[in-house]
């Protein structure tokens, strides 16, 4: 139980979110993520997984409750959100690479613009990151010239270029051809093994089972169930989760 002693990086307390059009996105959500933990979030479409993830780096506002990331209140209005976001990397389902820049430029842009890193070492560091995701030879390629799997790996490297403490993944493999899924998951596994703190929204149950420290099940804006992977998948003590797993695992 050394993990429970680790420092808390993300603390979500009783968070609710109602969209402008009245749709309820989150209801009384609470969650804690410690340094080095990998938390996978699963659940049916529209259950609020993306919404929860996006409130963590303030891409989405909340209507009630409180979120602390790296000891700062994200939605209190006092935090320097730009500074906070440099510590929280995010990977999107649709990659969102900058199409007018090469792979390497995609990595270098934010560190250069935000001025977090000295420029002299930046290029080498970004090149090393591309090598780490297996794309050393694609540094000068534009996103349009890369496959989906390659684009997503560049997107992961781009987030890592900011040297974040936390990585958020929103269905990073859902837009990929089935044969490209593993190359992305493998990169994520390496990250997890290196001790990166990760929140991963995913439909890849195999990945959740193998890599996660905890798995969270969401439905209709609520966290319905949360456990370590073995009991979560082997013996879920929740009828709704059982029904969901029955559907996705067949």
């Amino acid at each position: 139980m050394t993990e429970s002693a680790a420092e808390v990086l993300i603390e979500v307390r009783d968070v609710g979110k109602v969209f402008a059009n009245g749709v309820v996105g989150l209801k009384q959500v609470s969650m804690t993520v410690r340094r080095g933990e990998v938390v996978c979030i699963i659940g049916p479409s529209g259950s609020g997984k993306s919404t929860l993830l996006r409130t963590l780096n303030a891409l989405e506002t909340i209507t009630s409750g409180e979120i602390q990331v790296l000891g700062q209140s994200v939605h209190g209005g006092k935090a320097n959100l730009n500074r906070l976001r440099t510590h929280v990397g995010m990977v999107f389902q649709s990659f969102n690479l900058f199409p007018h820049k090469t792979a390497l430029e995609n990595l270098m842009l934010a560190p250069r613009v935000v001025g977090k890193v000295a420029t002299s070492e930046l290029r080498e560091r970004c090149q090393a990151l591309l090598a780490k995701v297996g794309l050393a030879d694609k540094a000068d390629a534009h996103p349009a010239q890369l496959s989906g799997g390659q684009q997503q790996r560049v997107a992961i490297a781009r987030a890592l270029a900011m040297q974040p403490d936390i990585m958020l993944f929103d269905e990073p493999t859902s837009a990929l051809d089935p044969e490209k899924v593993n190359e992305v998951l493998d990169v994520m596994k390496v990250l997890a093994r290196e001790g990166m703190t990760m929140c991963v929204v995913t439909h890849e149950m195999g990945f959740a089972r193998a890599v996660a420290d905890r798995v969270v099940f969401m439905e209709a804006g609520e966290i319905v169930y949360e456990d370590r992977p073995e009991p979560f998948f082997e013996a879920p003590r929740s009828e709704r989760l059982k029904a969901f797993l029955g559907q996705v695992l067949k």
């Binding site: 891409l59 730009n82 999107f92 842009l109 934010a110 977090k116």
Partner: peptide
């Protein structure tokens, strides 16, 4: 320009 571009840039800490 797709909204994701602005979101990706903001998520990296850009103003």
């Amino acid at each position: 320009i797709p909204r994701g571009q602005m979101e990706a840039a903001r998520s990296l800490g850009m103003s």
